[in-house]
């Protein structure tokens, strides 16, 4: 598709300039593997290699997390709109310094293949950027791209929902790729790794798998940016994003809150309002 090629060209141009002028030491972006045709994250520090950068419909990884490895370096990062929300959240959570990063934001993101999150995406333009590539999408265009899909899980009965998730989480091998791929999961020690208390058992029993997914989703409340990286990473094709995406919808409906829209907003659960809803409480 032309759109991806145009974006690629612009990324290469900007990256080359930034590296040549020594504005940044490194550019984090997408590239193609040496032996495969697959897209993979690459880290460019030599301007001559800037032409290795690409953007195409397979650029499914969320790159934002790599920023945490270069906290004290000046780096540039290629950011899809969802990744730019992740970066905004990192800034809001005070994890990275704004002056250290240059965001090459993608506007009018044409979407990622097989990523169901893209069908629900109504952001489509980078929320934070120093340089932009692509063409900004207008509200109408975004509206037109949105697939008017009702959530099929929402319509089920509780028993059916339970069954759906049991069938999903049963397959989980607890490889934790969903966790590692997610920008939110930067904890030095995840709750799964401690044994005092032992929140979830180590074996892949359904009861514990389910528990792991509920607990992780709880950590996504008000932080998930619905990028779909977790789902794309899962080797077992599990609908990992469903719970986190539900949290996004609930946060918006009940608290009018969206993660990563602004780099100085408070996260949902680190804030309150005296008049907050008590939806679901006893009479």
């Amino acid at each position: 598709m032309k759109k991806y090629e145009k974006i690629t060209e612009e990324i290469v141009e900007i990256a080359e300039k930034l590296l040549k002028e020594n504005t940044v030491e490194k550019v984090i972006g997408f590239g193609i593997g040496i032996f495969t045709e697959e897209v993979t994250p690459i880290f460019i520090s030599n301007p001559e290699n800037a032409d290795r950068l690409v953007f195409n419909s397979k650029a499914e990884m969320s790159l934002a997390k790599y920023l945490l490895n270069y906290k004290d370096q000046k780096v540039a990062i290629v950011a899809k709109p969802c990744d730019s929300r992740a970066i905004a959240t990192y800034l809001a959570e005070d994890l990275i310094k704004r002056e250290n990063i240059k965001v090459i934001g993608i506007n009018g993101c044409p979407g990622i293949e097989n990523n169901t999150a893209c069908e629900e995406c109504d952001i489509r333009n980078a929320v934070i950027s120093d340089y932009t590539v692509g063409k900004k999408m207008t509200e109408e265009e975004i509206e037109a791209k949105l697939k008017d899909k009702e959530d099929k899980i929402e319509k089920m009965t509780p028993a059916e929902r339970m069954e759906y998730f049991q069938k999903e989480f049963e397959r989980c091998t607890r490889c934790y790729a969903c966790r590692e791929a997610c920008y939110v999961c930067y904890c030095e020690q995840c709750f799964t790794e401690g044994n005092q208390p032992e929140w979830v058992g180590d074996s892949v029993k359904l009861n514990d798998n389910f528990t792991y997914h509920l607990m992780r989703a709880m950590h996504m409340a008000g932080r998930c940016v619905n990028c779909g990286a977790c789902e794309m990473a899962c080797p077992e094709g599990i609908d990992v994003r469903a719970l986190a995406a539900k949290m996004c919808r609930s946060a918006e409906e009940l608290f009018d809150y969206r993660a990563g829209i602004d780099s100085d907003q408070k996260t949902l659960l680190s804030d309150y309002d005296v008049n907050d809803t008590e939806s679901g409480f006893m009479e």
């Binding site: 929902r161 339970m162 949290m247 609930s250 659960l269 939806s279 679901g280 409480f281």
Partner: peptide, 15 residues
Amino acid sequence: RRRFVMLNEMMQYAG
């Protein structure tokens, strides 16, 4: 309160 509201939403969604 916020935490419980969100937890409740998620647990119900999970069945």
